[in-house]
Write a protein that binds this DNA or RNA. Structure first.
Lengths: 330, 330
DNA sequence: TTGAAAGCGCTAACAA
DNA sequence: TTGTTAGCGCTTTCAA
């Protein structure tokens, strides 16, 4: 019931090489023969075994994609972009998710490379305790790789936005609206670049950087909600907060409303990502728009190029535009 | 730089068979030998080639997952569930997305089976014009398969909720609140089971089924928004609408607000899925809660069982609980 | 406890 | 234009 190339060859009275040639429609097969082989293939409903092919050609036509959270619409769009570009090139994508655990990130990469994916796209955790041991390996072996964000000390191909500039823009906007006490609800491990943009904006406007206003939250609704409750029931309260991402911002707004604060009058809130929901949120969210789908697409395209010209050693940085979208929360 | 089992064998002065035994830690290897081999493996940083192994054992330790839309939080949760269960069993997941195109669904399945995934989870399109040609094949070949929803005329393993009952509950609730003119904004191809639940609820309460109130929308925000505008600017208007999913419902609420209708006073809205965002929506959405993560998990677990006891021929139906969550939109 | 050898299903020289 | 043959990197009898 499960036929192989030999069966087809036999039935068509040709050699396996010939069958192989028609399958991969290589030239140099007599029309007659080709047709005949095709007929047999159809009759047998023969499907070439990709894994055998992969072993032989040492390429799997698949790539690995490792993200941080599947259940964040931002990443859903990234996936969709990767997916669409990969399909166009005939590549399959194997998904991995680190769920913010450096160990899982490492494991995912390990698993995927063992599966011999032709290349890897990873959205690296920026956790300081993550050693990125695998990265050195991959780079040394010249493994086709693109990271969705720079990784300190490693020269990788990257597709990203300028997080620092975007954060700077958001905070500067807040300042221009008269805010002086601005907090930052950070993502995991303070999400360095956005934090830096926040700090620089304050500095540029001669505002103090107050450590009490920099809170390590996390990437989810709950984190924004919890940290929000915490911050706004304390004795020292900001008039605006810039958030690591939209989920956190939405969670925060929720907390704020429960505490009786008006957004944006009592406190202004800015998010990051511009997921679709922003416009449907209770208070339409002012946020940084990041072209997630395009990031995914570009990353996959870049990876395809790496796969085909493996080894030129050149590394490519691709920064896409992100910008502030003003809605009602700030 | 890229070593194989032969290299290890040579370096350790043993046979490939022995190396293979220690890799898969099979018993019957002298501790001495094992240790030695392990040392060489470490030294060489040897990684077994999974594709070679797959070819040999005729199993890839990977499954395929074909969903309808990646950018719907509902599916994100399903994926997460599948993912988590699969990882537990050491399986990798290759993602496919039909994007509501029967052709893509077919192609995805084809690609995945060619890649020789050990099993398949698919969220089948219910489009009437979709012939599901691949299903017959798969079933005939006894291919491990679970579908996230029943497929007419095919006996597959399924994990799902009782869509009809859930829709019935939602609509009955609306009726119990005094609504008599209730519309249904359906998903693609009217999403048969939910439509049926809607109709039965009307019938059970002796309410007429009005074709004008059954609109074929689609699965996205825009669909709900557009159809909402259309419906509520027409001359015959319902006082409540039951929606195919939360995205549609949220889009609809948006349209309603733009048109000056108050939700739920002027018109009540009920969604489906209970994605996280429902509670943060402008009008917290009343909806049917569906345990998406669990669906994913169960599906993967069931698939694993199918993979290990392939061929007992028995088919399993697994219906999880879904229930109405009352919030503020109805 | 270990090793030799055949085989998984394909591709790719090379020869015919 | 076609066929023969030798791999690709593993696993798995079977014999030693």
């Amino acid at each position: 019931m499960e036929f192989n190339i030999g069966d087809v060859a036999r039935m068509a009275s040709v050699s396996k090489a010939t069958v192989s040639a028609v399958i991969n429609n290589r030239p140099g097969v007599a029309p007659q023969t080709r047709e005949n082989v095709l007929r047999v293939i159809k009759k047998l409903n023969y499907r070439p075994n990709q894994v055998a092919r992969s072993l032989s050609v040492r390429a799997t036509k698949s790539i690995g994609l490792v993200i941080k959270e599947i259940d964040n619409p931002h990443f859903a769009r990234v996936i969709k972009g990767v997916f669409s570009a990969s399909s166009r090139h005939g590549y399959t994508v194997i998904l991995g998710s680190s769920e913010h655990s450096p160990e899982k990130e490492n494991m995912s990469v390990e698993t995927l490379t063992n599966q011999r994916v032709d290349g890897l796209i990873v959205s690296p955790l920026q956790a300081s305790h993550s050693d990125f041991g695998y990265l050195a390996q991959l780079i040394a072996r010249n493994y086709p790789l693109v990271t969705l964000g720079e990784v300190k000390n490693y020269a990788t191909n990257v597709v990203d936005i300028n997080n620092e500039a975007a954060a700077h823009e958001a905070v500067s906007y807040l300042i221009s609206r008269g805010h002086q006490k601005i907090a930052y609800l950070s993502g995991p491990a303070f999400s360095a670049h956005r934090l830096r943009g926040y700090q620089l904006a304050l500095i540029d406007h001669s505002l103090p950087i107050e450590t009490k206003f920099i809170l390590d939250a996390g990437p989810y609704f709950e984190n924004g909600y919890t940290k929000g409750k915490q911050l706004f029931t304390s004795s020292y309260i900001p008039s605006a907060v810039f958030c690591y991402n939209d989920l956190v911002a939405i969670g925060l707004v929720h907390a704020l409303q429960e505490l009786g604060f008006k957004v944006p009058d009592d406190v202004a809130v800015i998010g990051f990502d511009d997921i679709d929901f922003c416009q449907f949120a209770r208070i339409p969210l002012t946020t940084i728009h990041v072209p997630a789908y395009e990031i995914g697409e570009k990353a996959a395209d870049l990876l395809m190029r790496q796969i085909t010209n493996r080894g030129n050693g050149m590394v490519e940085k691709n920064l896409l535009d992100a910008y502030l979208v003003k809605r009602e929360s700030a």
